[in-house]
Computed example of a mutant assay.
Amino acid sequence: MKTFALMSLLLLGLTAGAVETKVMVRAKGRDAKFIGSSLGGAYVIIRNKVNQQILAEGKTTGSTGNTDLIMKVPKTRGLSIADAQTAGFLAKIDIDEPTFVSIEVISPFNQKQAQAKVSTELWLLPGKDILGDGIVLEIPGFIIDILKPRTHQYIALKSVKDQPFQFQANVVMMCGCVVEKGGIWNSEEMEVKGILKKDGKYLSEVKLSLVSTNLFEGDIKLTAAGNYELILYAYHEKSGNTGIDKVNYVIYE
C-alpha cells in the first residue's frame, strides 16, 4: 500500500502542473566544430509531435568551441566536447507531462545555398533537464561561395578569348572553420572541381586549387558565346563530406 502511494505521489509530481524543462541544442558541422555566432548561428525549432505546436525556437549563439577538445582529444564515453562558451540554443519549455518532441536544426542559417535541415525525436520529461553537450545534431556539407564569375554576369567574348577564364570560390567548413594546406582541414585532402555547361550541355571539368586560406582558383579557355553554368563542388573522401554552389553567366559576341 505504501509503495502504491509513493508511486502515485511521484506520478502526481510529473503531472500536477507545468514545469520548466531546459534543453540544450547544438549544431555541429560534420568533421568540424560547432555552428555559432560568427556564422550567424543555426536555427532550432522544437515541436510537440502530437499537434506540431512550436514549444521553443531560436538561434544557436556562442563560439565554435575548443579545437583541441573537439578535433584532437580521443573521444571516450562521458567526455564533454562543449565548454561554457560553445555555441548552443538553450530552450526553456513548460510541460506538465512527458512529451514527445521533434528537434529540427536548419544550418547555416545565413548561407542559403549550403543549408541543411537535420532533425531528431525524443521524449522530454517535466523538470528533467538535458544540459551539458545536450542534443548535438550533425550538419553535413561545405559552405561554398562562387566569387568569379558573378551571378548572371555578362562577359564579352573578345575580353576572354585570348586568355584563360578564371573561376574563384571560397570554401569553408560548416562551422566556418578554415581550409588551408596542411591544416586541420587540409586542402590537400579535398577535391574542389567545377562542372561547366554551355547551353545546357556538358562542356568541361575545371580543377580548382588553393591559392590562400579558403580561396580556390582555376581557369579554362572559352572560345564561344553562350549561356554558361558552373556547378562547383567540394568533396572530402575521408569524411564523405560534400558541398555545392552554382552560378550562371553569359558570354556574348
Results as ranks from 00 to 15, higher is better:
residue 17 G to H: 13
residue 120 T to K: 08
residue 73 V to L: 06
residue 187 S to A: 15
residue 176 G to E: 11
residue 73 V to A: 05
residue 124 L to Q: 07
residue 209 S to H: 12
residue 201 K to A: 08
residue 8 S to L: 14
residue 237 E to G: 07
residue 48 N to L: 03
residue 253 E to I: 08
residue 238 K to N: 14
residue 186 N to C: 08
residue 55 L to D: 12
residue 159 S to K: 11
residue 150 R to A: 15
residue 118 V to L: 04
residue 176 G to W: 13
residue 101 V to Q: 10
residue 123 W to K: 02
residue 56 A to V: 12
residue 115 Q to L: 00
residue 218 G to Q: 03
residue 91 A to Q: 08
residue 11 L to I: 15
residue 9 L to F: 13
residue 66 N to F: 04
residue 98 P to Q: 07
residue 196 L to W: 03
residue 232 L to N: 11
residue 71 M to R: 03
residue 141 G to S: 09
residue 134 G to Q: 05
residue 108 P to Y: 04
residue 129 D to G: 02
residue 104 E to I: 13
residue 38 S to I: 09
residue 153 Q to S: 04
residue 251 I to F: 00
residue 61 T to A: 15
residue 145 D to R: 12
residue 3 T to Q: 14
residue 19 V to N: 07
residue 82 A to F: 00
residue 242 T to E: 14
residue 223 T to I: 05
residue 27 A to Q: 03
residue 41 G to I: 10
residue 189 E to R: 13
residue 136 V to Q: 01
residue 246 K to M: 14
residue 53 Q to D: 14
residue 34 F to N: 02
residue 60 T to N: 06
residue 208 L to E: 02
residue 170 N to P: 00
residue 182 G to Q: 00
residue 198 K to R: 15
residue 66 N to I: 06
residue 156 A to Q: 11
residue 61 T to H: 09
residue 217 E to Q: 15
residue 35 I to A: 02
residue 142 F to K: 10
residue 10 L to R: 06
residue 34 F to G: 01
residue 123 W to Y: 11
residue 99 T to Q: 01
residue 23 V to C: 07
residue 174 M to C: 04
residue 61 T to Q: 14
residue 248 N to V: 11
residue 90 L to E: 09
residue 33 K to N: 08
residue 249 Y to F: 15
residue 220 I to V: 10
residue 50 V to Y: 09
residue 112 K to R: 14
residue 144 I to H: 11
residue 184 I to D: 13
residue 187 S to W: 10
residue 114 A to E: 04
residue 201 K to E: 15
residue 73 V to W: 05
residue 185 W to K: 04
residue 87 A to I: 05
residue 6 L to W: 08
residue 131 L to H: 05
residue 197 K to Q: 13
residue 164 P to R: 13
residue 117 K to Q: 15
residue 1 M to T: 10
residue 183 G to I: 09
residue 91 A to D: 12
residue 220 I to K: 01
residue 98 P to F: 10
residue 205 E to I: 00
residue 14 L to M: 15
residue 141 G to H: 04
residue 15 T to D: 01
residue 240 G to A: 07
residue 191 E to Y: 14
residue 168 Q to L: 06
residue 54 I to D: 12
residue 64 T to H: 13
residue 226 G to T: 04
residue 131 L to F: 14
residue 65 G to Q: 02
residue 11 L to R: 12
residue 74 P to T: 01
residue 146 I to H: 10
residue 130 I to D: 09
residue 98 P to D: 07
residue 79 L to G: 03
residue 225 A to V: 02
residue 244 I to R: 03
residue 72 K to N: 06
residue 48 N to Q: 02
residue 123 W to E: 07
residue 174 M to L: 05
residue 67 T to G: 05
residue 181 K to C: 04
residue 217 E to R: 11
residue 210 L to W: 12
residue 42 A to G: 11
residue 235 Y to Q: 07
residue 43 Y to R: 07
